[in-house]
Design a protein around this nucleic acid. Structure first.
Length: 431
RNA sequence: UCCUCGGUAGCUCAAUCGGCAGAGCAGCCGGCUGUUAACCGGCGGGUUGUAGGUUCGAGUCCUGCCCGAGGAGCCA
């Protein structure tokens, strides 16, 4: 019995007889010679089957093998320039674990509707495989950087009694006869945990019940939200640029093969190092007007505006000091200019738009109380949040990074639906 | 929610002015010792999303409905 090895480790077994356990990705039949492309989750390897090596009986069985049949392939590992990946197996034995009939996804072209309905199988395809491996690297890097920089992971609730912000629509559920909502942000809770721990982050799913039907929106998406006590707007931007740069450089260093599968131009990503350019909302408006776009001060940027601003720089760009009126109720005002607030968004390059929203939070009890009233929020529901301004209120900042948008940017893919194993979108909750 | 486009074989698509519904791939049969979405030959494969309407005749024109895609708004 030969050793079971994963394809990713195959180079270490050159010249040895090993067994690969996986699924048939594709097969080419040349008569007395067949090429099996076997994937095992860790990689893809070509297995060369010759009739004279394994005899007519097994050879004929292999000839009947169909796409995605489960197989255990035993053979000698050879380096060969002609093989994808540089190594191949000269097959000595094939054990068929399951013959598969009529696997629906062929190596040919398919439409989005067809593939999305078969998402549970589509994730086996090489492009999807590469994207989801990069996603895993991004989430690994997120935790590694935060854990290494004094942030404590605080898991915030998914079931919440009310809205965190007043702007978006929430999914309502029944909580023992009372209405409850799926969280749209852990931020408010993290403003409490920083009072206990100083620097924290939450990382989990977030839900928005808006009927958004665009390439940048999911109804369920993942967001990491760091929050920091005694950190102002400038300090927040410094953390963001260090954090994002680390994530990008980790993907470049650890997922080069997957970026190649996606044919990602990595030269743009190599430039993603601190410092990032910083422009005020005022200057962003000027920039848009100078480029001939019709945009007036006080409006929020739409997708085309974000694209133009993002494309004006060679790395992600901070836009800060948005009008107070278009931002959430908890944003701190600029003391010199109350009509703008200490908020900052990070717009990704290459037209991928906003990947981070954040800024400095209101520290003043009086201002927050006034904002809650002004935004028609229920005072009672925010009493605990007001408590945080009663007992040791300090300047503090935080931000939320959208994982799927980051994956789409780094993978250079057109639609966010491919950045999560099972996307939840308007009109799609299957599979 | 609004705007635009689409739905034809298992998949991806074609079908001229309203006039016999067709190709590639997949499947099945045969051939081939270096294939990379292999190639060569052969075979089978259809309630044209759905309900009506116009017409001698509708995949094609008209209306409703269903489903999907792209975009807007909102946002990460």
């Amino acid at each position: 019995m030969s050793d079971w090895v994963y394809v990713r480790d195959i180079a270490a077994s050159e010249g040895q007889v090993v067994t690969v356990k996986g699924w048939l990705y594709n097969r080419t039949d040349k008569g007395k010679l067949q090429f099996l492309l076997v994937r095992d989750g860790s990689g893809l390897i070509q297995a060369v089957v010759s009739e004279k090596d394994i005899g007519p009986e097994i050879f004929a069985e292999v000839q009947r093998l169909t796409q995605e049949s489960a197989v255990e392939v035993t053979g000698i590992v050879h380096a060969d320039r002609r093989a994808p990946g540089g190594f191949e197996l000269q097959v000595q034995d094939v054990h068929v674990v399951q013959f598969v009939q009529d696997y629906p996804i062929t190596p040919k072209e398919h439409g989005v509707e067809f593939l999305m309905a078969r998402r549970h199988l589509w994730i086996r395809s090489s492009r999807q495989h590469a994207i989801l491996r990069i996603r895993a690297e991004i989430t690994r890097a997120v935790r590694a950087w935060l854990d290494g920089h004094g942030f404590l992971n605080m898991d915030t609730p998914i079931l919440t009694p009310s809205s965190c912000e007043d702007s978006t629509t929430l999914f309502q559920t029944d909580y023992f006869g009372e209405p409850a909502y799926l969280t749209q942000s852990g931020q408010l809770y993290n403003e409490a945990t920083i009072g206990a721990f100083g620097r924290v982050y939450c990382f989990g799913p977030t839900f928005r019940a808006e009927k958004s039907k665009t390439r940048r929106h999911l109804t369920e998406f993942w967001m990491v939200e760091p929050e920091m006590a005694y950190v102002d707007l400038d300090g927040c931007m410094e953390v963001e640029e260090q954090f994002v740069s680390y994530i990008v450089q980790s993907v470049l260093a650890n997922r080069a093969d997957d970026l190649k599968v996606l044919e990602r131009d990595t030269s743009r990503l190599e430039k993603v190092v601190p410092p990032f350019p910083r422009i005020s909302y005022d200057d962003a408006v000027k920039l848009l007007n100078d480029k001939g776009l019709d945009f007036k001060w006080g409006d929020d940027f739409g997708a085309p505006h974000e694209t133009v601003i993002g494309e004006s720089f060679d790395r992600p760009v901070f836009v800060h000091h948005y009008p107070t009126a278009i931002k959430a109720f908890y944003m701190e005002e600029d003391p010199q200019r109350p009509e703008v607030c200490l908020s900052v968004d990070l717009l990704a390059s290459e037209g991928y738009g906003e990947i981070i929203g954040g800024g400095q939070r209101t520290a003043s009890y009086e201002l927050l109380e006034q904002r809650i009233k002004h935004h028609h929020l229920t005072r009672e529901a925010y009493e605990w949040y007001l408590d945080l301004r009663r007992y040791g209120s300090v300047p503090h900042s935080g931000f939320g990074l959208g994982i799927e948008r980051t994956v789409a940017w780094l993978c250079q893919i057109q639609h966010i639906r491919e950045t999560i194993p099972f996307p939840r979108m308007l009109e799609r909750i299957y599979p």
